[in-house]
């Protein structure tokens, strides 16, 4: 489509190619399009594959819980252990048959769900105390399955689980039980920062850099946001108001830094993520400072003015990203 538009623009500007050259270009273009999948169809397939995987995972969960009460413990354990292994085999078979990976993604995500179900149900059956270390197993499984078959969604799910495990570690070492191990904002922000910087510091294949950065950025921003509004979630033994103020400043700094990084390296997800975080932080502070004493119309007028400012800023960020400045 873009290529055809280029040709039209050339014609409009008076640059006319001879018929033979045009035929060769058309033939080349046709061959390219025949090999490459249609972009819209590809997006639709990705979406359908994701929705299918989520629905299939839910079906596996509900199917097991519908019938497990009628099974002896040994049968329950056998089914639980076999299901993820069987789904890995299905992923392998589908990956060999179909190179686009949509069906393999569906099977792989369902395998991750079956593994989550397995450890969760084993915990219930044997009355095991809940542990955050299950997230390490789920994370490694998702990441390794994704990397083995070059599938992005299970890899991303694995990164999220691994991020939750890293976040839980300091609380676990302090003897905090679940789910409170995730209650400290600094743990989440630091885990996010570590994930964000991993592609730079460790030898991760470029294919997976975006997953690292997205999971890291979300973790960092959520952690800082929680600390900026709820000082009690901090490890710092100082006044909560002081902690909130400190993390608001750190949050603004981190938002600006991530946006600038995204602009400099032409990474849209970082630039947009940073801007969205800055916007949310500003909106929250606006509500915090002005909701009480401004008339409602003035408050919303202010928000509208702010939104217009953000739109202008985002336009400039987009331009800067596309120009690589």
């Amino acid at each position: 489509m873009a290529f055809k538009a280029e040709l039209l623009q050339l014609a409009e500007e008076g640059i006319v190619l001879d018929e033979g050259t045009l035929d060769r270009i058309r033939a080349h273009h046709g061959a390219l399009l025949a090999d490459a999948p249609d972009e819209r169809l590809s997006l639709g397939m990705r979406l359908a594959s994701f929705v299918g995987a989520v629905a299939l995972s839910a079906a596996v969960f509900f199917l097991f819980y519908r019938f497990w009460g009628a099974l002896a413990v040994t049968s329950q354990v056998a089914i639980l252990v076999t299901a993820p292994l069987l789904l890995v085999a299905v992923t392998h078979a589908l990956h060999r048959r179909e190179k686009t990976g949509y069906f393999a993604t569906l099977a792989a995500l369902t395998a991750v769900a079956a593994f989550v179900l397995e450890l969760g149900a084993l915990g219930t059956i044997f009355n095991l105390p809940p542990t955050p270390h299950a997230f390490l197993a789920w994370g490694l499984f998702g990441i390794l399955l994704g990397r083995a078959y070059d599938l992005r969604l299970p890899h991303f799910a694995g990164m999220v689980a691994l991020g939750l495990w890293v976040t839980a570690l300091p609380g676990e070492l302090r003897g905090e039980p679940l789910p409170d191990v995730w209650g400290r904002g600094e743990a989440l922000a630091l885990a996010g920062l570590a994930f964000l910087l991993t592609p730079r510091l460790a030898g991760v294949r470029a294919r997976w850099h975006d997953d690292h950065r997205i999971v890291g950025m979300v973790g960092l921003f959520v952690g800082l946001f929680v600390l900026s509004v709820h000082g009690r979630a901090s490890w710092l033994p100082v006044d909560h108001d002081l902690i909130e103020g400190l993390y608001q400043v750190v949050g603004f700094g981190a938002g600006v830094a991530v946006t600038a990084w995204g602009v400099r390296e032409r990474r849209g997800h970082l630039a947009n993520g940073g801007m969205i975080f800055l916007t949310l932080l500003c909106l929250f502070k606006a509500a915090d400072w002005w909701w009480e004493w401004l008339p409602r119309w003035a408050f919303f007028l202010l928000i509208a003015a702010f939104a217009i400012g953000v739109m202008v800023a985002l336009q400039r960020v987009r331009r800067a990203v596309s120009e690589g400045r």
Binding site: V77, E118, L122, L128, A148
Partner: peptide, 25 residues
């Protein structure tokens, strides 16, 4: 692609299953 790309994911499933089952044992 490795000859047995499934090996590591399968090892994780078996290893992670062994931990709770060993505890129960």
């Amino acid at each position: 692609m490795a000859r047995a790309p499934w090996a590591l994911p399968v090892a994780i499933v078996l290893g992670a299953t062994l931990v709770p089952l060993a505890k129960v044992g």
